[in-house]
Each structure stands twice: as structure tokens, then as C-alpha cells.
Design a protein around this nucleic acid. Sequence first.
RNA 1: GCAGUGGUAGUUCAGUAGGUUAGAGCGCCAGUUUGUGGAGCUGGAUGUCGGUGGUUCGAGCCCACCCCACUGUACCA
Length: 495
Amino acid sequence: MQEEKDKKALPPIARRPRGFNDIRVDVLANSQSIISAIMTTYKAWGFEPLETGAMEYSDCLGKFLPDDDRPNAGVFSLQDDDDQWMSLRYDLTAPLARFVAEHWDSLPKPFRRSAAGPVWRNEKPGPGRYREFWQCDADTVGSARPEADAEIIAMGGAALEAAGIGNADYCMKVSNRKLLDGLLQEVGVNVDDISSRLVIMRAIDKLDRLGETGVTDLLGAGRKDPSGDFTHGANLNPSQIDKILAFTRTRRDSRAATLDALSVVIGGNILGNEALEELAKIDATLTSLGVKSSNAEFDPAIVRGLEYYTGTVFETDYLRETKDENGRSVRFGSIGSGGRYDDLVMRFRRERVPATGYSIGVSRLMAALECAGNKPIAPEGPVIILCLDNDYIANYFKMAQELRAGGIAAEVYLGASGMKAQMKYADRRAAPLVVIEGSNEREKGTITLKDLKLGARLAQSIEDNSAWRAERPAQKEVARTDLVAEVNAMLAANK
RNA sequence: GCAGUGGUAGUUCAGUAGGUUAGAGCGCCAGUUUGUGGAGCUGGAUGUCGGUGGUUCGAGCCCACCCCACUGUACCA
């Protein structure tokens, strides 16, 4: 009892829930610029921005309804005061389906929507995996044409390049669910047996990581991983497995060649032919949009784990080899993915509403850019006006207002420490320069401007600290009346 | 979820066969005769040694359970 009371008296330990990140100004500046580059591209291709709320009624989000046993499995859920379950959205596609179904009659069709925002998943976080993260999506709802898929694919590449990914560093890998369904029919697997179809899809999805031997195990009896964990397999026989593996090897260096190879394997099948026709149209559209095979290729080994895709599927591979801080090479998962989901809106309305879309994971994209050595944006802080003389603080505020009126971000130091500490503060705030007015300057009607960025550059050759300080480099005494003009000149000189 | 590894200052780590007041680098804070950040000088602060219980005269070190982190694996609509 007593102990419990003592525990209660302790203050809470400041800590952040795992999987949720604090984002400081340097990272924030970069993610905002990436998001804006992507959204600008989406807009240029005719996609209208739409923002929806963070929560949806759980039954609108899909199959993951909270139940009594695990009300929060996968999603964050809570019960509203009218007892309805609500959940934080786990992607931007499900809210789109809800919105479209709700407003179908008043929407222009096809409806082309872009969206950027955070999504939440109640899962175990890992490196590069968070419980809150941003996605940038674009979707075309109400067009069944393969050209709609092609356009999304081409635009996805354009968006990535706008965000800073090099043209040679990514490849959109495109396939079609119907290819696999056709193949499974031919091989004698019951396609309507959803669970075995899913096991097979997930097995193929792991090709890049586990290789053909691992996937062979997963398609057969099952696989035991090095840690001793056992994964049940699809229990196919060796000849079925061979045919599936042969199918996954039909990728060629050009889209046309892959189509030829595929038609040999799957051509006789009705679903397979449908898929081939769609892919051929996608190829033609990509070609007319100027998208090379090196940036968008057909790869039948791409299946994607998600159940809701009905046709075209694609994901974006980041190609550049990257190393972590220990020099080990890092494998990035896809930095974006998408596909056609013709049945998602059908949950709300009886009619089938074909839709296709693409989603970019912002933090993963940032990690890729960072590993590739892209120079991050260094955010710039305000001009700091030192407060050397409390009796004259009014003067400092006046200077700040003059600078702001001149379009320059400025701030008066409001702490209580000495000059050295104030310089340190300005340094930490990434201030481009500081304004100094002590009694020396005031008596002369001048101010001293110190260029922190130039100083930083000069400091690289510093050998003797006291001499360095005596020299007072990178600073300049100017007339008080020229404050705004001189600050502007110094800022311009540093661009 | 399953398996392996680990948990000592803000951080990276050291801690010798269980023995007195638990250490180092970096970082942080303050001062350095009106004046100057990023590599000067001087001084300073900081740890429920992940938690709880146990063994012991004595536990950072040994034992049990729990928590958390990392790695692999599964799931990821």
C-alpha cells in the first residue's frame, strides 16, 4: 500500500511511445520539401488534393473490425460516445473508398484525387518502420482502362524524380494479378481457395529476400528459418512449384520481350490473355509518355501481399546500393507501391467502381535519399540580435521589427546569459548572422554584424584560438541606420 | 507472435575472481578583468548500474521472473 503510494508520487518519466517520432526542424524541412515536390507533381498530372480526417468508422476501414478479444489488433481504435467503433486510418486508400462511395453522385468521373498525410498502424515498430508515418497517394477512381494504370506508373516515377531520386536509381516493377491467377488455374490450384492463393502470393513476394530455394520450401512443405521458426508452406507438388518458378523467371530487359516470354508460359489461359492485353496497353502508353524500360519494366515475380488488388500491381525498387553506418549494404524495401483495386468501393455500393492508385512512403523515401548521399536541406534560423545591455533592450526589439518589415526572420535573444552563451545560442539556432550592439557601437551610432556562416568556413583553418578570437573575422561594423540593407547584403553574399 | 543477443551518466562505452564513496571520451552547464559560436583555459553537474524478488556479512557483477531494446522470422488490410 505504502509503496504503491510512493510510486504514484514519482513524476512521470518523459518518454516517447515507440514507433512515434519527434521530428526536429532539420528533418522536417526535408520531409516537407519532399512532400511538396510529390504533391506538385500529382497536381501537374491533374489530381485534385483531398484531405480526410484521421479517423474512420472501423467498419468502413475494411475487414479489421475491432473485436472483444483484440480490439486494437493492427489499428488504433476507440469507441465513440454513441458506442460506434472508430479507428485511425492505416492507409489513404480506405478513406478514399469511403469518400467516393459517400459522394459518388456529385463527383466528376473519373475522380482523380491526391492526398498526403499521416497514417497509423498498431504494429511492432522496427528500423524504418513506425506506427505513425506519412504517405503521398494519387488515385484514379472510375476508370477501368489500363491507360489509367500506365499514367499512375509514369507519374509515380516523375514524382520520385521531383523528390530527388535519380532517373537511374529507381525502377517501377509492374505485373498483373490475373497472370498469377491464370497460372494457378493452369497448374491446378483452386484460385477460389483464398488462403492457399494468399500463401502462394506471399511466398513469391519473398523471392528477392529468400531466393528460389527458400521460396521452393514455402511453396512446398514449409520453411524453417535460421532462428528455428517454422513457416507453413502451400503444399504444392514439385512440378507445380517448377511451373510457378518458371513463371517468375520470365522477366526480360524490355517490356515487349517480357510480354513475349509470358505469352509462351500463360498465353492459352483466359485470365492470362486478359492480363497480357492490359499489359500491352500499359506498355504502349508508357512508351508514348516517354517512360523507358529501365524505369518501368514488367516483372511477373511482383505480386504484392495485399489481398485487395484485382489486376495491375506495381512497386518501386530503389536500385542504388546503399550502406549503413557499419558499411553493411542495406536493402531497401519498395519506396512506393500501388495497383488496381476494382472492388474496394463495392463494399459501400452495389456497383463495381474500378480504381487504381499509387502510394509513396515518405520516411522510407527520405531514408533512401539520405543513404544515397543526397545533400539534405540545411534549415536556416533567424537573424539573432544579441542582448548585451538590458537597459537598451527596447532598441533590440526595434531592430527586430525593422528586419521583419524587410522580410528577414529575426529574433532578440531573451535568455539571461553572457555574450559567449548568446553566440552559442545563435550557432545552435543555425542563425546566418548576429547583430551586435553594445555600448561601443551605440556611442558611435553603429552596429556590428557577424557572419556566422562565413566564420564557420574560416574557422576550419583555426590554429590558435586566442589569436583567432582577437582577429574577430567575418564581422563588420556598419551604420545603425543601414541595418536592413547591410543584413540583406550579408545574407546575399552567403547564398 | 516465435527465436537469439543485449540493457552501467545525455551519448559511446570501461568496470578487473562478488569487497569500501561506480569510471573515461564526447556532449552539457558556468566562469575566463565589456564583449565573440563552431578546436583556448579553469571549474561544475549528472546515474533508483532496466525492474522486482532471491542467494550472500556484502551484488553493477550470481539465480529467478518481468520489462525494454536490437537482430532474424511471421504478420502488415
